[in-house]
Amino acid sequence: MAKFIIPTNASIHAAKSFISKSHFFEYPPKSASLEFDPRWMYTEPFAVSMLAAWAAWYKAESVEIKIENLSAKADYLWRMGVFDYLPIEYRPSRSEYEEAGRFTTLKQIITNEDARNAVADISTLPHLADSPEDLAAVRYCVSEMIRNVLEHSGSLQGAFVCAQNYPKANPPRVSIGIADCGIGISAHLSRKYNQARGNDIVALQLALEPGITGSMPTGMYGSSDNAGAGLFYTRSIAKGTGGYFMIYSGSACYRLKRATRAMIEKQKMERQIKLFPDSFKEPHDLWPLENRWQGTVVALEIRMDQILDFGEYVTWIRKQIPKQDRTSRRPRFT
């Protein structure tokens, strides 16, 4: 039986433990259960998005989900909108909450309009509206992540995205999660890169490299709509601020490590950060997992105490991208 377990800690930091507890998919899908931890649950946005995507997929497969241990501890998940996708009604334990939580609730992204609205919705995150540079960074990442899914996932249910602001946490950060139950990265990239076929680890490595896309050329001029640099930019922003970046597809999960305080101080002192096109040269964790995720999950953190000028970040990332022999052709700005 497929089983999704929400443990006490479903954070990016504890991702491996969280993922390893469950058995998300079985084939053919026959039965599924969702088990909440009855004590308490700390659930970050990527896990919320995974749960919604998973529930929507089983619903589309006409498989009933059995719910276990539902208690008042699920209030947060209710507020995030998870129960809109679960076959059970939930009454929160409290009737009133502070107005406007520090989060944006789950959004299901199927159309371009959904994508545009989700990017716009990010500005409703309290504290971000007062910090335009942070807001721009978050919008940038959300947009690239959503567009990536819209174009490549092949998921009929689309993708699920949500975000949470942790302004008083250490480190202060915005955490974003997006998940789909589509074809996954290996299947997408293997249309062009044979080495990604059936190898989720190689597929992840390729997907994070700039210039790699599974999109087929749309004409004699290459892929007019995709460069394959969106995920590279997203992880670069996460790295630049010192936050986690995690991507999980099939049986492989890659996690760019959070920068330690010492690393950030060193970067500031030396005024330089190395950014590797090959994500496997970055400080990271790589987990081959028995528990496959059908589709793709991306989680990232953007630290709010690091971005003074997002425009400088964009310029910095561009300078970090290595080039082939450079021509002297320059765009004309007026």
């Binding site: 490299e209 700039p210 210039g211 460069a227 640099a229 330089q272 950060i273 190395k274 950014l275 590797f276 096109p277 090959d278 040269k281 910095w316 561009r318 300078k319 970090q320 991208i321 290595p322 080039k323 082939q324 022999d325 450079r326 021509t327 052709r329 320059r330 765009p331």
Partner: peptide, 15 residues
């Protein structure tokens, strides 16, 4: 413009 004409390289650069 850079990658349209020159593609992406593969070595890390420190700036």
């Amino acid at each position: 413009v850079d990658y349209s004409f020159d593609g992406f390289g593969s070595e890390a650069v420190t700036t």
